[in-house]
Nucleic acid binder design. Structure first.
Lengths: 208, 208
DNA sequence: TGTACATCAGTGAACGCGCGTTCACTGATGTAC
DNA sequence: TGTACATCAGTGAACGCGCGTTCACTGATGTAC
């Protein structure tokens, strides 16, 4: 067996990899990073719990190594995606690159996006958010500029707005409760982002 | 003490509330929903662990009750926010409503946005995402349409694009791996969203 | 209003379990001569 | 090439702990007469 031929350093690296992959797999399967246990990761990697400590001091440390790996892969993809002509071609190219990358790197993306919560609860929350977006779409239909838009396009722009708002909230929550200066900055950026979206609307040919 | 005067139903409701508030508090303090323990929630609510079962069968069930409450509050806010004139006034009003609501309901928003992961890990991931946005901003500066934009505005639009992309990824990850039809739909919406943003750019007066 | 009984929110002891971490260890790989 | 010793990745037993869940219980509140 070639395994016996590998150097100590190579075997060490292989175990480290196995631990990281075991963690990714569990997360990809729907578990959250927070509920991973050192013992389960070691078990999946085919190694005794104490061996874990030869590679990482804590699970958190393994998590940070995964952040490094994930974004290294992501950056490589983005670098490649930036060889297009005008901004409009770039849009098509970048979305297609992104979806392809997600297809082939579900493990990394699962980790980035859901180092997070329970499947059931997340699902409930996403459903509510979609509902909010739908209600917004209904409301938007009343504006003159949007009167001739298709339902799909109204949904599309509502989703864009709601997702942008949620990102804004995420940023607001990182601000220390009293820091009104920073809160105002974030709100200012959020307004600009929405205004930019609104500016695009008259130029949009819905149904195209 | 008026506590002795309350009916059984009122006391029951109070305990239920205390359990839900204990969970919210822990999440607001940075804990993830997934790592909450029934015993810690009961302890914080000033009640014995077994009393929990008089109100919820599982922690998950308590979580779903929190989703209900959070979005009830959120919807009330949005209803109020929709009494403005044109879409542009609405932008300003809605952002200001949102920031005020987040300020006064940090508990609910913390729950909605971070039923999720470790503080440290989330921070590492957000930092990486910001970096990606910055790189995008640098790249965008090369396009003729954007040549006269301020750095802040380039950052603003980059953040909008990157956040939108991440929402797209979240949706892609909910699709069953083989379902190419659904993946194509999501990609199509993502492209439209980006194109809409791009359409707004020529009309944008940067620095305003 | 008074009594007898039913309901039921909250109690407290007990259980078995998987966890993170410690420790002394083993035996293969690597190094010096 | 051969030997003697050092290094070090992985082992396996043991620990104390907080957990979810069970069970029989208590005693205050509510209800029927």
């Amino acid at each position: 067996v070639p395994a016996e031929r590998r150097t100590q350093a190579q075997r060490r690296q292989a175990t480290r990899q196995a631990l990281m992959e075991a963690a990714l797999l569990r997360i990809q399967a729907g578990e959250s990073f927070d509920t991973l246990s050192l013992r389960s990761v070691a078990r999946d990697a085919g190694v005794v719990p104490t061996a874990f400590y030869r590679h990482f001091a804590t699970l958190e440390e393994l998590g940070l190594a995964l952040v490094d790996d994930s974004f290294r892969s992501l950056r490589a993809m983005l670098r490649g995606a930036r060889e297009s002509g005008g901004p409009d071609d770039a849009v098509v190219a970048s979305v297609e690159n992104l979806t392809a990358h997600v297809q082939h790197n579900r493990d990394y993306w699962s980790f980035i996006v859901r180092s997070q919560g329970t499947t059931q609860l997340r699902h409930a929350i996403r459903t509510e958010i979609r509902l909010v977006a739908s209600e917004l779409a209904t409301d938007l239909a009343r504006f003159p500029v949007l009167r001739e838009w298709t339902t799909d396009d109204l949904q599309m722009v509502s989703a864009l707005i709601v997702n942008s708002m949620i990102s804004t909230v995420e940023e607001l929550l990182e601000v220390a409760p009293g820091d009104e200066r920073r809160e105002a900055e974030i709100a200012a950026v959020a307004k600009k982002q929405l205004r930019l979206v609104v500016l695009g609307m008259p130029a949009w040919r819905s149904g195209s």
